[in-house]
């Protein structure tokens, strides 16, 4: 059986702050799988995710989501189509309560199906008990790990088919990182396709199905876990060609 692609990116070029951060990236994500994008700082990983989510507009290239060209579409449309991003540094709403953060995540559905949204919030509380304890607390007063859970839960409130995650482990204690990764794995097993950007390559290798390596705005590798383990390519990407 041929595997369906939920996301296809062709020759994407995006500039950010006058600098060309993506110089022709072509990747794809298979439906139901966990695709990891690895690479050093400044490789263009976050720019790639921002472009996919419609926060940045590409100079050139195409983004295809479930067979439909979504290049240059508004973020609000993309969220309704089932594409959600958990951004780097979580970006939770600091002065909204945990409950309001979750409501905001379901903004598009809030007008029509308020009751279903309330049910979904209860489900999120069951999945993340710490959020239930803190439901009336302001988002900005929570710890980094709790904020990360909230950011994931907020993105899930839009019922995404494809979840983009930008460095969910950054700045968290190892124990919490383990917890976050097991949540990611579980979400993937429940059927949500995931594109995960990570600097923590060893953690990503534990859970990913497919891998891409970005360096200086270009992808320098793409393949399965077996393929990436076989080549010494990660070391090269992180330490530079000469170190390999």
């Amino acid at each position: 059986m041929e595997e369906k692609k939920i996301l296809e990116v062709e020759g994407l070029e995006t500039s950010y702050d006058m600098i060309k951060a993506l110089k022709g990236v072509s990747i794809s994500a298979i439906t139901g799988k966990l695709t990891c994008i690895l690479g050093p700082n400044g490789a263009g990983k976050s720019t790639l995710l921002f472009t996919l989510a419609g926060i940045l507009n590409p100079d050139r290239g195409k983004v295809i989501f479930e067979g439909e060209d979504i290049t240059n579409q508004q973020t609000s449309n993309l969220v309704e189509k089932g594409l959600a991003l958990v951004p780097e540094n979580r970006l939770i709403f600091p002065h909204l309560t945990v409950q309001e953060n979750l409501l905001a995540g379901a903004y598009a559905r809030l007008a029509k199906e308020r009751e279903i949204v309330e049910q979904d919030i209860s489900e999120m509380y069951a999945r993340f008990p710490v959020l239930k304890e803190r439901s009336s607390q302001l988002g900005g007063t929570m710890s980094g790990g709790e904020q990360q859970m909230l950011a994931v839960a907020r993105a899930l409130m839009s019922k995404p088919k494809l979840l983009l995650m930008d460095e969910p482990s950054v700045g968290l204690a190892p124990l919490i990182v383990g917890e976050i990764f097991s949540i990611i794995k579980q979400l993937n097993e429940e059927g949500i396709s995931i594109v995960l950007v990570e600097q923590n390559a060893s953690k990503a290798l534990e859970i990913g199905d497919y891998f891409y390596l970005l360096d200086q705005g270009k992808q320098i590798f793409g393949g399965s876990r077996e393929a990436i383990l076989k080549e010494n390519i990660i070391k090269k990407a992180y330490l530079g060609e000469s170190a390999g």
Partner: peptide, 23 residues
């Protein structure tokens, strides 16, 4: 209200508000 939630979200974290689908 929903509008108020959107207004507060936009004011606190513009990018996150866009990611939530808030126009």
């Amino acid at each position: 209200t929903r509008l108020g939630l959107a207004t507060r979200a936009v004011s606190q974290q513009n990018i996150a508000a866009r990611l939530c689908g808030i126009p």
